Simulated assay, not measured.
Amino acid sequence: MELAGIVTRSPVRRAEAVEEYPDVPLYDSLTDLLAAGVDAVVITTPPETRRELVLEATKAGVHVVADKPFAPDAEVGRELVKAAADAGVILNVFHNRRWDTDIRTLRSVLESGAVGQVARFESRFDLDQPDTLEALVARELRLLGSEGSYVSQQGAYHRYYEPFALAVAGKGPEPVPGAEAVHTLEVLDAARLSDAERRSVDLEG
């Protein structure tokens, strides 16, 4: 996978991009980047802007990775999934932590039944710059069960892009299809409704 361009209008971000990626072109808008010609885009803008950008990219026939949450609710998520399907492009969501070594190990531990009946699960993220949500210092997952326990070690989430690149090339499954990520939005919708109405909300499927 080759980085073909970066979109930012922030002077600070542009300076950082030039320093870190001196040979990569910078663009003022997604429209300009699409006009230059790319196979796929990664959209990491604020959540309220993502719908329009995803629609613009899919309409242009470009594959998309959208940061999480990729839509404000499940209804909009389904709209974006349909738009990508109609355009014949891939829409995936950056649920990158699924590729962390600790998460993948946790999944295998659960599937093996080694800890028995799960009694407690703890997840802790430590940040040294919480205003940016970028500087992750440490994370620990702790699973306690009737037959044993599991304590994690942090892994590498960048591996998400490897299966995405293969999917774009038609050589493998998509890492997190938009339709799958809609289920996460349905859970968030239910949580908001439960909080607003002070009742349990059943999820179908």
Rank of each mutant, 00 (worst) to 15 (best):
L3W: 05
L3H: 06
A4N: 04
G5N: 03
R9A: 11
R13M: 06
E16H: 11
A17Y: 06
A17H: 04
E19V: 02
E20T: 15
E20N: 10
V24G: 00
P25W: 03
L30I: 11
L30C: 04
L30T: 09
T31A: 15
L33H: 02
A36I: 07
G37N: 11
G37W: 10
D39F: 02
D39Y: 03
V42S: 12
T44S: 13
P46M: 01
R51A: 11
L53K: 08
L55A: 13
A57Q: 10
A57W: 08
T58S: 09
T58R: 03
G61W: 11
V62Q: 07
V62L: 06
H63V: 03
V65H: 08
P69W: 06
F70H: 14
P72Q: 00
P72C: 05
D73T: 09
D73I: 06
A74R: 04
E75C: 01
V76R: 03
G77I: 10
L80E: 03
V81D: 11
A84L: 12
A84H: 13
A84V: 12
A84T: 13
A84W: 13
A84C: 12
A87K: 13
A87F: 10
A87S: 15
A87V: 13
V89P: 12
I90R: 07
N92R: 02
N96P: 00
T105K: 12
S108C: 00
V109C: 07
S112Y: 05
G113N: 02
V115G: 02
G116M: 09
V118A: 08
R120Q: 15
F121C: 06
E122A: 12
F125D: 08
L127K: 03
D128K: 09
P130W: 10
D131N: 12
V137P: 02
V137M: 09
R139V: 11
R139D: 06
E140S: 14
L144V: 15
E147P: 07
G148A: 06
G148R: 05
Q153H: 13
Q153K: 14
Q154S: 11
H158W: 04
H158M: 00
Y161G: 08
F164D: 03
L166A: 15
A167G: 06
K171A: 12
K171Y: 02
G172L: 04
P173H: 00
P177N: 02
P177L: 01
G178Y: 05
G178W: 07
A179M: 07
A179Y: 03
E180R: 05
A181D: 05
T184R: 03
T184L: 10
L188E: 10
D189T: 11
R192N: 05
R192E: 13
S194T: 07
D195I: 14
E197W: 04
R199L: 05
S200H: 00
G205Q: 06
